[in-house]
Amino acid sequence: MENVFIARQPIFRKNLSLHGYELLFRSGITETAQVNDGDSATSEVIMSTFTVFGLQDLVGDSTAFINLTRRFLVESGPLPLPSDRTVIEILEDVSVDDELLAAVQRLKKQGYTLALDDYNYSRETEPLLELVDIVKLEMPVLLGDGAEDLIKKFRSYDLTVLAEKIEDRPQLEHCRSLGCDLYQGFFLSRPDISSDTTLSTERLAIIELLSKIHDPDAEIPELEAVISRDLSLSYKLLRYINSAYYQRSFEIRSVRQAIMMLGMKELKRWASIVSLCNATDKPEELVKLLLVRAKMAELLANDLSPELADACFMAGLFSGLDALLDRPMEEILTRLPLAEDIKKALIEGVGPTGEILNNVLAYEVADPSGLHLPKLTAEEVRQHYLSALQWQQSQNQMI
Rank of each mutant, 00 (worst) to 15 (best):
V255K: 11
V255D: 13
R256D: 07
R256T: 07
R256I: 10
R256V: 12
Q257G: 09
Q257E: 13
A258Q: 06
A258E: 07
A258R: 02
I259Y: 00
I259R: 03
M260A: 10
M260D: 11
M260L: 15
M261G: 13
L262R: 00
L262H: 01
L262N: 01
G263M: 04
K265N: 12
K265F: 09
K268N: 14
K268F: 08
R269I: 08
R269Q: 12
R269N: 03
W270T: 07
W270E: 01
A271Y: 08
S272A: 05
S272P: 06
S272Q: 05
V274T: 15
S275M: 05
S275V: 13
S275G: 11
L276I: 13
L276F: 03
L276H: 00
C277R: 10
C277L: 15
C277Y: 08
N278D: 15
A279V: 14
A279S: 15
T280N: 13
D281R: 00
D281F: 01
D281S: 09
P283K: 00
E284K: 10
E284F: 10
E285K: 09
E285H: 11
V287P: 01
K288R: 13
L289V: 04
L289W: 01
L290K: 09
L291S: 01
L291R: 03
V292Q: 04
V292I: 15
A294C: 08
A294W: 04
K295R: 15
K295P: 10
K295V: 15
A297Y: 09
A297Q: 08
E298N: 14
L299R: 01
L299V: 07
L299G: 02
L300Q: 03
A301S: 14
A301R: 05
A301P: 14
A301V: 05
N302W: 09
L304C: 06
S305L: 10
S305V: 09
P306G: 14
E307V: 09
L308Q: 11
A309G: 05
A309D: 06
A311Q: 05
C312Q: 07
C312I: 04
M314R: 03
M314E: 12
M314V: 14
A315Q: 08
A315C: 06
G316T: 06
G316R: 06
F318K: 04
S319A: 13
S319G: 09
G320T: 05
G320I: 05
L321C: 06
L321M: 12
L321N: 01
D322V: 10
A323P: 09
A323N: 05
A323E: 01
L325G: 13
L325D: 02
D326F: 07
R327T: 06
R327Y: 05
P328V: 06
E330R: 03
E330L: 12
E331W: 02
E331V: 13
E331D: 14
E331G: 06
I332D: 02
L333A: 11
L333Q: 07
T334G: 00
T334F: 04
R335H: 13
L336W: 00
L336R: 01
L336K: 02
L336C: 08
P337V: 14
L338E: 01
A339F: 09
E340D: 12
E340Y: 10
K343E: 06
K343T: 10
K344N: 07
A345P: 13
A345D: 04
A345T: 03
A345M: 04
L346W: 02
L346P: 07
I347T: 15
I347W: 00
I347F: 03
E348M: 10
G349Y: 09
G349D: 10
V350S: 14
